[in-house]
Write a protein that binds this DNA or RNA. Structure first.
Lengths: 238, 238
DNA sequence: TTTCAACCGTACGATAGCGTACATTTCGGA
DNA sequence: TCCGAAATGTACGCTATCGTACGGTTGAAA
């Protein structure tokens, strides 16, 4: 698959690069389609590529040796999958997989390392994203520790909504329950509650956001901190 | 206060730098004493310095506009306080304060930026630490979402124990309750439970670790992932 | 030496979420 | 068109933790 010209690239980080930096990336990048559950970064294996999502969503999951899993960060077309490589780290105990299918521009690890080493501005922009990802993970820690399931669910739906086209996206209760680290029936009732308040519409394997403002209210202060910082650091940069 | 020679420096990151890199840092650094509750990085204000702790512990706290607070990461002499600066970010919504008093070597922000820009190896080592800090925050998210209070408390005590000299350190139940995002009486009973099992000894405003192995068992899989990665990435480097 | 604020112990009803089980609905493929 | 697996709805007793309140203890400062 071809890599789009910068004019048409949908990944926000790529779109704000200098034309020169973009060309440098383009010359070593390739386009790929991402299917649901594809593993982009496998746990404890060498990281082969970084991915700039053009559409779809990737999920980073923290795991313990005993097999406990929970989502700590999600990335869509606003970011980059493969933050460890940015930090000169070749592999990670976490796994990142495709939560919602889409397309991506990807760069092989060695080429990527060379690029960020040689290009200061490129490195700076990606570093900013790495920091926002840290804020998001910290926000997840905050939420997991002190918000109700309903608030956390609302936060999660908002974060997905930010990253997809349109108001609807595929997701099952079962999937949500492992991402949030709660029971599946707990998700079912929480979804009913949001649905009853007219914020969303749930159909088998899908959720549609009906009233984003109400959903924000339901999320309370669990939503917004990393989003604000993203805007401050990564909007309208060049 | 003077900055020690590399031979005697206690901060692990500084100790593994090349002599040349250390000298470069030393020439722009100063020694400071850190008192309990001193704020090293204030929320939403320009970051003035990075701190290499020589002793003591710093706490990074995520906060929302509404005032909700919870600890997401702690740093002792194994790390660096001021990760945002590493990532080219000048300020952050989080606050970092001194949890246990001690000493530090600190470097003014502008000088630090110049150093990491010019020195590739320095940048690499610090980037590795930034990644371990991300793992720790992710571990906090995992724990907050899926471990019991007793497991989380055990994890927290182990992480402190790793960073102080000796087996005893100052901490109040009240403080722990805000760090863990739980009720203060909840901490009291959890501490009693660990104490009853002979893992720790609690005195007014202090905790002493008696049996680290048992404490590890009590923490279950909440403890260990970032610690293992720290060893892989940052032990015996030069 | 006294005082008082900080710290700690404990209790009790309330509740969010758990673990589990099982029935029902939906949809894609044979 | 039918079947089976996946997804969803619901129920029930259980447990961890909450919110709150209050009394006891300790140690540093006056």
């Amino acid at each position: 698959m071809p890599v789009p010209s910068q004019r048409y690239v949908r990944n926000h980080l790529l779109s704000i690069l200098s034309p020169d930096d973009y060309e440098a990336i383009q010359s070593v990048a390739e386009g790929v389609a991402l299917g649901r559950r594809d593993i982009l970064i496998a746990a404890n294996k060498s990281i082969t590529h970084v991915y700039f999502l053009e559409s779809g969503i990737g999920s980073e999951v923290a795991a313990t040796p005993e097999g406990r899993r929970i989502e700590v960060c999600i990335t869509g077309p606003e970011g980059i999958v493969g933050v460890p490589l940015l930090l000169d780290v070749d592999r990670t105990p976490h796994e990142t997989f495709v939560q919602i299918e889409g397309d991506a521009v990807r760069v092989e690890a060695t080429a990527f390392r060379r690029l960020i080493e040689e290009r200061r501005l490129l490195r700076g922009i990606f570093a900013h994203y790495a920091y926002v990802a840290h804020l998001q993970t910290a926000g997840t820690a905050l939420s997991n520790g002190s918000h109700t399931l309903e608030e956390r669910l609302a936060r999660w739906l908002l974060m997905c909504h930010d990253r997809v086209d349109g108001d609807e996206f595929p997701v099952t209760h079962e999937f949500l329950s492992t991402m949030l680290g709660v029971r599946r029936p707990g998700v079912t009732t929480a979804i009913h509650s949001l649905e009853g308040a007219g914020m969303i519409k749930a159909r088998r394997s899908h959720v549609q956001v009906l009233d984003r403002d109400k959903l924000k209210a339901a999320a309370g202060d669990s939503y917004g901190v990393p989003e604000t910082e993203y805007r401050r650091l990564l909007w309208a940069r060049r």
